[in-house]
Structure formats: structure tokens, C-alpha cells
């Protein structure tokens, strides 16, 4: 391969990487906050699906992208509220509640999609790349980093904000204490449940946004199970990133890279590997990554355990 085409390949791969990592970054950042508060929300896959569908439906109906993203976040928020009622107030088993949310997400969106959209086949206008003046003209680097849409750029401030809130505010301190030793917060008179609710809801809104990205910036269409496991991958990203938003950003890029490679290799006629094998790449990476990461003890010690007041 000539140098030029090699650089082309790399430039495209890096650009696609960041774009494909974006939904993972949003969802995993939200999940990291949620898990820091001691709530394991494995329903993030379902939340992303609901976000993807609501975003698509809203944008389809109104023609307004911003409204679509807003609807994605709002629906993620509301779904997370349902989860929080079970996980925090009723103190149900969080795994079971999360599975229920996932099944609900898949069933509900598939049903609504078939009922209202499947015959139309019409897509929505997706978020356009926002070329940053001058920088986007740099050869190779420009197309890779500075011709992305707004949401892709937004991952950086979102991750920094999440990190700042968790580690540099009193709220974040309390969230971290709630995930580790909730009684210490309870005896000061603060409500453990309220903090857990807030973390779950932030996680839900970010998960919904990540989902909406799939239908409003990645594809222009909703298809059944469009998330295809991204929520679960986000869950393993959180573990791999040791519950840190900054870590989430880079680990998501790693996973995004496998999505990007997979797509590009499929498009390359010289690669004679069955496309199913390539498609499996991100999932295989997840399994290998989780086998390599032996830092379970970094997990918040009350992760997944409901808090009972004395």
C-alpha cells in the first residue's frame, strides 16, 4: 500500500473511531456516575434503545434535530426513573430490574417502530459535520478530528464536566461516599436515596443521548435493536476505565477503534475474512478486555447493593 493511501486509511479510521465511540462515551460516562453511587444499572442497553427511538421519532415528526436529541435525553431520564424506583425505593435486585429495562426497551421500541414507521422507510436528516475553520483543512488530521458533528465534539466537555463534578464538588464527594459507605452519609441527615436517584437519572439522560446519537448522527434511521449490545459494552468500559470519566473517554476510543476497523475492513475488497467475523470484533475485544482487567476491587464496595436505613 502506498503511503498516501495508508494515511488516508488511518485518517478515516481515526475519524470514524471518535464518531463510533461517541455513543459509548456518553452512555459509559453516565453509567460511571451511576455506579459510583453504588447502583449497577445494566438497563443502560434498554435506555439507549429507547433514547434512539424517541430521538428518531421526535426528529421525524418535527424535523428538528435538537428536539430529537432532547427527546432522547428526556426518554433516557424517564426510563432511568422507572429503574430507580425499583432499584432504590423498592430495593429490588438491580440485575433483575436492569434486565427488565433491557427487555422493555427492546420490546417497546420494536413494537412502536413496526407500528408506525416500518412502512415509511423514510429517514431523518442527520447531524452535519461542523468543520472547524482552518483546522479542518489540515491534510489527514483535519478530516479525522475537525470535521465531526457537534455531539462528537461535545464528548470532551461532557467527560471533563463529569470528572469535575465527581472529584471536585461536594456533590461528587457525597456520590462517591454513597457508593462506598452510604451509612456515613445517612448519619449526617442527607438522603442516600436522593443521591442515588440523582446519579441514576444523570446516567439515564446520558444513556438516552448516546442512543439518540445512533439514529440522529450515525444512521439516519431507526432499526430494531440498533444499539446491538453497545449498552453492555458501555458497562464493561466502565469496569475497564476504573469508574473514571476520563478513563471512560479513552477506553471508549479503544472500543470505537474496533468498530471503525471492522467497518473499514468490510469495505476493503482485499480482505477475505467473513464479515461476521469482523462484526464480532468489538464483542471479542470486550471479552478479552474483561479477562485482562483484574481490578474488580476498585469497584465501589456497595455496587449493586440496596441501602436499608436502620
Amino acid at each position: 500500500m502506498q503511503t498516501a493511501s495508508m494515511l488516508d486509511f488511518l485518517s478515516t479510521a481515526v475519524g470514524a473511531d471518535w464518531r463510533l465511540a461517541t455513543p459509548l462515551i456518553f452512555a459509559a460516562t453516565g453509567e460511571a456516575i451511576c455506579e459510583r453511587a453504588g447502583v449497577l444499572n445494566i438497563g443502560v442497553e434498554g435506555i439507549m434503545l429507547i433514547g434512539a427511538f424517541s430521538g428518531f421519532a421526535t426528529s421525524h415528526a418535527t424535523g428538528d434535530l435538537a428536539l430529537g436529541f432532547g427527546a432522547g435525553m428526556a426518554s433516557g431520564f424517564l426510563t432511568a426513573l422507572v429503574f430507580a424506583v425499583f432499584a432504590v425505593t423498592i430495593k429490588a435486585n438491580q440485575i433483575v430490574a436492569g434486565v427488565a429495562i433491557n427487555l422493555l426497551g427492546l420490546g417497546l421500541t420494536s413494537f412502536l417502530f413496526r407500528t408506525y414507521f416500518i412502512s415509511t422507510g423514510r429517514g431523518v436528516d442527520i447531524a452535519r459535520p461542523l468543520n472547524i475553520p482552518f483546522l479542518s483543512d489540515i491534510p489527514y488530521l483535519g478530516p479525522a478530528l475537525f470535521q465531526q458533528n457537534l455531539l462528537v465534539y461535545a464528548t470532551i466537555p461532557v467527560v471533563i464536566a463529569a470528572w469535575g463534578v465527581l472529584f471536585r464538588t461536594s456533590y461528587g464527594l457525597t456520590i462517591r461516599a454513597v457508593g462506598e459507605h452510604p451509612k456515613a452519609v445517612d448519619v449526617t441527615g442527607k438522603s442516600v436515596a436522593l443521591y442515588r436517584y440523582s446519579a441514576v437519572l444523570i446516567g439515564g439522560a446520558l444513556g438516552g443521548l448516546g442512543g439518540a446519537f445512533l439514529t440522529l448522527a450515525h444512521a439516519n434511521q431507526f432499526v430494531e435493536n440498533i444499539t446491538s449490545g453497545r449498552g453492555f459494552i458501555a458497562l464493561s468500559i466502565v469496569v475497564f476505565a476504573r469508574w473514571s470519566p476520563i478513563g471512560v473517554f479513552f477506553v471508549s476510543l479503544l472500543f470505537g477503534l474496533f468498530y471503525a476497523l471492522q467497518l473499514q475492513l468490510q469495505a476493503d475488497p482485499n480482505v477475505r475474512v467473513p464479515y461476521q467475523a469482523l462484526q464480532a470484533l468489538p464483542y471479542l475485544t470486550t471479552i478479552v478486555a474483561l479477562m485482562l482487567v483484574r481490578n474488580r476491587w476498585d469497584a465501589p464496595s456497595m455496587l449493586g447493593i440496596p441501602y436499608w436505613k436502620a
Binding site: 461516599a177 452519609v185 449526617t188
Partner: peptide
């Protein structure tokens, strides 16, 4: 009532 994952000072200003 001390969260082990926080520092001493962080525990003091908790809540």
C-alpha cells in the same frame, strides 16, 4: 462512619 475510598480531609467535609 468514614468512607474508605476518600481521604481524611474529604471525609471531614462530606455532606
Amino acid at each position: 462512619m468514614l468512607a474508605p475510598n476518600l481521604t481524611v480531609a474529604e471525609n471531614y467535609v462530606l455532606c
